[in-house]
Design a protein around this nucleic acid. Sequence first.
DNA 1: AATAATTAGGTAACTAATTACGTAAATGAT
DNA 2: ATCATTTACGTAATTAGTTACCTAATTATT
Lengths: 178, 178
Amino acid sequence: MDILSELGALAIASRMKRMSEAIMRSGAEVYRYYGVDFEPKWFAVYYCLSEKGELGIMEIAEMLKLTHPAVIQLAKELEKKGLIGSKKSVEDARKRKLKLSKKGLELLPKMQKIWEEIRLVNTKIIENQEHNLLTALEDLENSWAEKDYLSHFTKFDFEVELKESKNIKIKEQYTKRP
Amino acid sequence: MDILSELGALAIASRMKRMSEAIMRSGAEVYRYYGVDFEPKWFAVYYCLSEKGELGIMEIAEMLKLTHPAVIQLAKELEKKGLIGSKKSVEDARKRKLKLSKKGLELLPKMQKIWEEIRLVNTKIIENQEHNLLTALEDLENSWAEKDYLSHFTKFDFEVELKESKNIKIKEQYTKRP
DNA sequence: AATAATTAGGTAACTAATTACGTAAATGAT
DNA sequence: ATCATTTACGTAATTAGTTACCTAATTATT
């Protein structure tokens, strides 16, 4: 039991980040193990294109809840690997349509096998847990999505001294949300 | 239900990362709300020092399971904010001992109040969930820590073509772990 | 006592994302 | 038809870490 675990609900973000990174590393190992030159971070974009055929940068960004520069970056890498290609959209010249290349399509059946295997293993591990992480995560995603986390913090008075850039001391009392 | 959620156990790492980032952002909001100039990423180092008094870079890194350059970076920021100080250890000249500064100690009671508040809110949210995330996370941390994740992947035969740098095609059959 | 190995800490370069900002194309308002 | 707004994409700078590599100090080996 390390110090972060002891802190429970307080350090939950760090723990989830750490766990997420561990899972990602395992993913990388699995691809390597099956001899496929593929990085876990490419999965989401590649998967979207495999499912939807053609997509613009923004469409993918919205699907994955990433920013569009992140998608551009991932698309560049996938393009460099020859797994996807892109062309200007005819009906809207602002858009660049991405889709799997011939090589990307050829790889797909293999990837699907591997994904299915990963899904099985992960599901097995998760279902072995008494408290199911996947459903717990779903619950939490929904609670947090309510977006009013800060509204819980109205309980105690607290005199705060704020040193401003111009060395003016401001005393503020926080009892209600602004 | 977005595309990552639909993928369940396959995209669990991305989802945890996203969730972790959302919680971190909320943490930043809470500090701002209480008028404290403090970033969530400083919490772990500051907390360790508040609990243990004096610590070297490596001690903190091991406690938090961060790399030592990460701790150096965080320590620099905390030092710049005047919340911690450091001095060469007398008994071991390689070591640099970190500890809370006067200002850092003065801030501590406020921080402890805020942490307690955050802990209460997070605990409330998490306990409202049918499947408890905290215990689920603990279970998963333990399962994954077993370090033999890859050993689950011995189930299907898979002919892999590896194009090596010298354009030699190698066919390998993966049925057992190397 | 000299040398080898380990440990503590530091720096640099990289990574995977972000925010901030800019431009061109399409859409909407008048 | 023109001008303002929005949308799609791109680039640059920033962030919060990492890995790789380095030096200096300590500890272990002979």
